[in-house]
Amino acid sequence: MNAETINLNPASTNTMAIHALLHLADDSLIMGHRCSEWCGHGPILEQDIALTNIALDFVGQSRHLYQYIATQLQDISNDVALTLIDFDILPEKINEDSLAYLRDTHAFKNHLLVELPNGDWAQTILKICSFSVYRFYLFQLLQKHTDLNLAGIAEKSLKEVQYHVKWSSEWIIRLGDGTHESKSRMLQAIEFLWPYMGEMFEPVMYEKVYYHLDDVTYTSLKNNWLDKMNQIFEQATLPTQSLNQWHQTGGKIGKHTEHLGYILAEMQFLPRTFPNAIW
């Protein structure tokens, strides 16, 4: 199956594929991690359960992706594989867990947006909504990808993403059009998170090569996203936004905020303390 789905010839194509897949997997994992931090601390039991469901969806997506990456790496010569994922490990030990637990911050390729702290409910909701709307349009494209494994993962995830969009956009509307306090918290959330939105629409090399999306498609992805967000904001009686201002980038090429290091320190401490243990 791998011969069909990944071009084994030019090393660079491999690199692009692995990096793009890692980028998708890391996004899901770190989103899942942040959402899971709410478990037991939600504003009401019912919403605690809802958010934990979303965390589970993200962790599940990341597992599918890491597992797929691991099988891809088995087929590539060891040296190349290790350079690709940027860490030192015996090739036979490459699996979903080593990919998640043994890479350092510079090897992670998630958007800066997803690693930012949860903040309050408004900030968390806006992060989930903006990321899920982006994922919704992206996965609609990726489910037609020639890599059938990726297409399959995108198709399966889309159902989850649709629900995340529905759930989180309804919350934005409630908060924006709720009380004075909730509106001002939504405005603060927008102000805090907005500089990180642009990174989603600035494709790096591996996205361009592997997604096979031309500039026109990328522009329409961006416009669709912005239209949808503004539609939600309008319903929420919040001011509409644009993407013209300066934004933060770097996550996708391994240049992260300070927050990611703490996430990984917490997440990875056990496998790193007991290197060869099975859990």
Binding site: S36, G40, L45, T52, L56, R63, D97, E266, L270
Partner: peptide
């Protein structure tokens, strides 16, 4: 819940999340 972010494998993490969520449901 305080071990969800520290679960030592992704499988264990998913199981623990589902379990703690069940407890919320049971409550």
């Amino acid at each position: 819940g305080n071990w969800i972010t520290r679960a030592p494998s992704l499988r264990r993490k998913a199981i623990l999340l589902a379990k703690v969520q069940d407890e919320a449901g049971h409550g």
